[in-house]
């Protein structure tokens, strides 16, 4: 029996679902090992029972929570799909404001029409079995996870920083070479350092490593000319949900 796979979406751009759809030349062979029963970016049909649930997006409304719990209770394996879901991601930038303030900024005098609050990662509400980090998630990791889940073996992402893969690609370090502020040293790798490889700094989309040296990183970024505000912004972009602004501020002193 092929495991049934479902995709669900909360506060997000649905870009991670699109990334799965972008696996054009591998989609057919994926369908040999799984059956997709719920995937609104690609199919209309929906089934209410499934084995593996990919949950995209962060939780930003109370009304989302029962839906998430239902998914958890149905799925044998629940995967946080992308950085919104794994760490509240870019949505959590609004968490620096009170929900009413953020609402008023976006919706003006119609703010009351919209239910929306602080963005949270899904593991604040339910148990998550696996994380596919990144904005968007990495397609090779997605395939690895599907293969592991379909054969009942654990899926492991080695806890190595982006710098490791960047070095192994033979890239010139953009922090050292161009003083471009980059979070590669403290961010979970697995993306094959795709941003620095094309000259764009790592902005931490795959999440800050659990044992990262936040103080040391702030110190060396300052040494490379960053202001405290720039360091805060760098961390806040994708990791506000995990590292409060206060921590980053205290760290950069």
């Amino acid at each position: 029996m092929k495991p049934k796979v479902a995709f669900f979406s909360f506060s997000s751009c649905e870009g991670c679902q699109l990334q799965a759809l972008n696996l054009e030349d591998q989609l057919l062979s994926l369908l040999d090992i799984i059956e997709i029963v719920n995937f609104r970016e690609a199919i209309d049909d929906k089934l209410e029972n499934y084995d593996i649930a990919f949950v995209e997006g962060s939780i930003s409304r109370y009304s989302d929570i029962p839906e998430l719990i239902k998914i958890r209770n149905t799925a044998k394996v629940l995967v946080a799909f992308g950085s919104c879901s794994s760490q509240a991601g870019i949505n959590a930038i609004r968490n620096r404001l009170r929900p009413e303030e953020a609402n008023a900024m976006v919706y003006g005098d119609r703010a009351a029409w919209v239910e929306t609050g602080h963005a949270k990662g899904i593991d604040e509400f339910v148990k998550v079995d696996y994380y596919l980090n990144g904005c968007p998630m990495d397609r090779r990791e997605f395939i690895r996870l599907v293969k592991a889940a379909a054969s009942g073996i654990p899926f492991i992402i080695p806890k190595l920083p982006v710098c490791t893969e960047c070095k192994l690609r033979g890239n010139v370090c953009i922090l050292e070479d161009r003083n471009t502020l980059c979070l590669g040293a403290v961010t979970l790798g697995g993306c094959n350092a795709i941003c620095p490889a094309y000259g764009h700094p790592c902005v931490g989309c795959r999440g800050i490593l659990p044992d990262a040296n936040i103080e040391g990183m702030a110190e060396l970024l300052r040494h490379h000319g960053a202001s405290d505000l720039e360091i805060e912004h760098l961390y806040a972009m994708y990791n506000y949900g995990r590292i409060s602004l206060l921590t980053a501020r205290a760290a950069s002193r």
Binding site: A148, I153, C163, C173, A185, E219
Partner: peptide
């Protein structure tokens, strides 16, 4: 000071440590 990026060992001409991992084919 160290941010544990691993660069010092990856660029070292005498370091040789490796990790071993498994990868399944698509057929499983």
């Amino acid at each position: 000071k160290c941010v544990a990026c691993g660069s010092c060992t990856l660029v070292c001409p005498t370091c040789y440590c490796f990790d071993i991992r498994d990868e399944l084919d698509m057929s499983l």
